[in-house]
């Protein structure tokens, strides 16, 4: 696969490398592999990189970088990233964590979703638990995982009017994406259930249970099983 990408500035100390503007497993693989390679072989002044669906933001400290290289920052980082991309073998796919997430499927939007898609609630559960999801990225809220791809039969758009408070642990659908609310917050995703797992715990480091690149399976639990597993 010949990589196509553009490199530009998000501000004076952040470079963005964009591969495309779409949700795609192979493109996200490239983002995550570059993210990993950069962490292993950082450049002077490198702070962190942030993977998204199809782009990677690279944060650096300009003063640190200028001490190490006389080149203008953009030229240096651009050259460094191009070099890394050339060293990134095609079709690399490093080991991904596989994580199982229990869900009690009792979401408030489940009945309406079933109606709308002309499915039984049990069918929605079967469809949602049938596939393996990719954590494409974290964003929106601390620890919020954007996962996909959701089966077209249950891919419902965001609610027209967002809820003012979605409880922590809620599992939702927005188009072909599925996600889990790490803390209670306003939100517009269609709620289908909730997990008893704390996916964001500020007493842990890192606080987020999931990271970009993880492979996720959801499995249905009963109310009793939920109560036994409940971490909230």
């Amino acid at each position: 696969m010949k990589d196509q990408y553009t490199i530009s500035f998000l501000n004076e100390e952040v470079v963005l490398i964009s591969f495309a503007n779409k949700i795609d497993f192979e493109i996200n693989d490239r983002v995550i592999e570059l993210h990993r390679l950069l962490a292993q072989t950082p450049f002077p002044g490198f702070i962190e990189s942030v993977p998204a669906y199809a782009s990677l933001a690279v944060y650096f400290n300009r003063s640190e970088l200028s001490k190490a290289s006389p080149l203008p920052a953009l030229s240096f980082v651009e050259g460094f990233l191009k070099n890394l991309m050339n060293r990134l073998p095609a079709n690399t796919f490093s080991e991904r964590r596989k994580i199982k997430i229990p869900v009690l499927y009792d979401g408030e939007d489940l009945p309406a979703l079933a109606d709308q898609q002309q499915l039984k609630i049990e069918e929605i559960i079967t469809i949602h638990t049938a596939v393996q999801y990719r954590v494409f990225m974290l964003g929106f809220l601390p620890g919020f995982p954007y996962m996909g791809m959701v089966d077209a039969r249950i891919a419902a758009p965001r609610k027209a009017t967002p809820r003012t408070c979605v409880p922590a642990g809620s599992v939702g659908i927005a188009g072909f994406q599925t996600g889990i609310y790490p803390q209670s917050s306003p939100g517009g995703w269609q709620l289908i259930g909730r997990t008893p797992l704390k996916i964001f715990d500020t007493l842990k480091n890192p606080p987020a249970l999931l990271k970009a690149g993880d492979e996720i399976f959801f499995f249905a639990v009963s109310q009793n099983e939920f109560n036994a597993l409940n971490e909230y």
Binding site: L10, L16, S18, N21, V50, A52, Y53
Partner: peptide, 13 residues
């Protein structure tokens, strides 16, 4: 009109 898939933002964006 085009949809934008979520991507990094920063202070000042």
């Amino acid at each position: 009109k085009r949809e934008l898939v979520s991507s990094p933002v920063e202070v000042g964006t």
